[in-house]
Amino acid sequence: MPETPYVLAAVAVSAGVTWALRALPFAALTPLRASRTVHYLSTRMPAGIMVIILVYCLRDLPLTNPVRLCAPLLALAATVGLHLWRRNALLSILGGTTVHVALASTLHLH
């Protein structure tokens, strides 16, 4: 079991680096806020960034194993389908996750 001072130091280093990455760019970018190119980027980035993070969440899909692949794909289809149908975020997330837990818990037993 790692010693407490070491883990505390690791937590402090991680928190410092993470906060710096979140806070410092504002200082650098504030003068650019008036730029039309920055405005162009900032209005289009959210949609793209969400798509990229979604693909990142799915980066380790077991493409060569159809049995294990079906749990995340069906769960994703359930999430998207529910959301297009009812547009209720809670329902879409709960439904998709339930499908995934049910399939993954039963399929992985074998």
């Binding site: 798509v51 995340p72 769960a75 959301h83 837990v101």
Partner: peptide
């Protein structure tokens, strides 16, 4: 197992909304 899919579902929803 499989609770971690909640994060994927969240970003699927956020992407659709964005």
């Amino acid at each position: 197992t499989g609770l971690d899919f909640a994060l994927t579902a969240l970003f699927a929803v956020l992407a659709l909304e964005a």
